[in-house]
Simulated assay, not measured.
Amino acid sequence: MDFRSDTVTQPTQTMRQAMANAPVGDDVYGDDPTVNELETWAAERHGFESALFTTSGTQANLLGLMAHCERGDEYLCGQQAHNYKYEAGGAAVLGSIQPQPIENNPDGTLDFGKLAAAIKPDDSHFARTRLLSLENTINGKVLPLTYLAKAREFCDENKLSLHLDGARAYNAAVALDVDIKEIAKHFDSMTVCLSKGLCAPIGSILMGSKDFITKARRLRKMVGGGMRQAGILAAAGKLALTEQVTQLETDHANAKLLAIKLSELPGVHINPDFVQTNIVFAKLDAQIDIHGIAKKLSNDGIIISPGNPIRFVTHKDVSESDINFLVEKLKLYLS
């Protein structure tokens, strides 16, 4: 039982069969029919002109930022944004793009007043502010559709492009009970991770205009992301976007169940009402040795990421009985 992340999901048997039987070609030459089908289908499904299959969400975000911005440009984002905090500084190191992080509000949004104040004047002293990058979901929180509409208006007023790190955008769509296009329509570009809760083994999709994706495709080659017979992976990616979306409802329900049960444990503090998707954060009393508990749980066949707050993530390979077993063991070790 692995509660560290939804990145640990195993591909379904249907995915494995599709991968084994996928028609393939050299994708760098544009000859892989399965990749081409996925990219064409994904672009249409999400309301964009074009799409690009990439190795990871980190690569998709990097290509997106580099396709929007030139050397010496700047993008606005949240302090907790994955493409600022957890992607090894790639935009700055590889793209020479300056991040301008803004403190996230408790609900994951960014204050438009603070964003406006961070936009640089048109002056040779400053980096050129070109882009606002949002993340949805962010730390499991869903950005409201009304907020996305305001972000679009803000970017139009300030002549900025708008990018979405949509690694878990389908979790957001499921939580809001809307079609994914209701989220995607506000953005100039968007990524979707196929290998988290949607449980493909590898890959993300970057989407945008034809010119934007043409530039991103060249950049993908530059950073070593050009794959050859990648249809073996794309076949699973198509199934992730078609057959696995409904699974997210179960993941969300299991996360809520886990939050409720955790709230009943001594020394664990969590409000289950704050759990919106498949990610659960709980604060622990200072005296709790969570690292020691993690070692005991490992002996029970349970893997967690020790920390305070501690994060648990539900996914396809975590069942309700797994949650009950985890809580029983935590109750024992916390007593």
Rank of each mutant, 00 (worst) to 15 (best):
M1D: 08
Q13S: 13
P23K: 00
Y29H: 12
Y29G: 07
E37N: 11
R45A: 12
T55W: 11
G57R: 05
L65N: 08
L65Y: 03
A67T: 03
Y75G: 04
Q79M: 11
Q80Y: 11
K85M: 06
A88L: 08
G90W: 09
Q98P: 00
E103Q: 11
D107V: 00
A116P: 03
S124C: 08
L132Q: 06
G140W: 09
P144R: 01
T146K: 14
C155S: 08
C155K: 11
D156I: 11
A167Q: 08
D177M: 06
V192Q: 07
L194N: 11
P201H: 12
I202W: 05
G203Y: 01
S204C: 11
K210C: 09
A216R: 00
M222F: 12
G225H: 02
R228I: 01
Q229D: 14
Q229Y: 15
A230Q: 07
Q244S: 08
Q244G: 00
T250H: 12
K256M: 06
L262C: 10
L265H: 03
P266Y: 10
V268Q: 07
D273C: 06
V275C: 09
F281N: 13
K283P: 00
L284R: 07
Q287N: 15
D289F: 02
I293F: 12
K295I: 11
N308M: 05
F312A: 08
T314W: 00
K316E: 08
V318K: 03
F325P: 01
V327M: 03
